[in-house]
Amino acid sequence: MPTRIRTILLAIGALLLFGTPVAWYLAQPSPTAGELPEALDVRPVDDLDDEDVREDETDGSDVDGDDEPQQDPADEAVEERSPIVIEAAPGRPAKPVSVSVPSIGVDGAEVVEVGLDANRAVEIPDDVQQVGWYNRGPRPGEDGNAFMTSHVDSRSQGRGVLFDLRRSEPGDLIEVTHEDGSVTEWEVVFRERIVKGSYPMDRVFRFDGPPGLVIDTCGGPFDPNTGSYENIDIVYAVPLGADYSNVDIEAADQSG
């Protein structure tokens, strides 16, 4: 064998043997990215300061009906009627119907409502092209985290629509289209990879405090023996432009 060919073979061999795993490893997204604002890393109590919150859902009697009519009973002329003003807190945002994450190729994925299954875990749509929105939690834009999930893949259907969720990075845009045609924009702030069995329930299923959007899907190494992934990748987003760094969380410190 000529020296030249031998050299080429050696070079190719070394490149493949050592280069392939290194290149593959470098191409993998890191298991976590970004940082979750402290204000979102707790389970706030009800009296959390809601000043930054767009949808101020009150929970009781306060808003209701003390709107006294501002009428003037003696006003026979009728010309100058002062109107009865109905003061209502903003209504609820409409339910989500589709979601886009342009950076990872999610383009208008259909969002369907999911609840709890027999084990009281969040249902996941059978169709891996659909994203499930948990309808026993907040709607996107309401106080707390709106939660969405989808199978990362399926034996019969292949890759799911959230296949590349693990590649999303802080700063990525998420667009949610609502039932009424309105669109809300969100910004990824944090991605984490958790080990199955230690899911951060309190952090994700947060029903009070500043609005957030949490999307997850399976990730990490796949164990063919159990037929399941070892991890779940969770992406946290906040309303685009929202700054939660100064949200007063003193009231929430007691929980977590």
Partner: peptide, 13 residues
């Protein structure tokens, strides 16, 4: 309970 969104291993790391 926590959910388990994936089953085929296509996204395995």
């Amino acid at each position: 309970e926590e959910h388990s969104p994936g089953e085929a291993g296509l996204a395995s790391t």
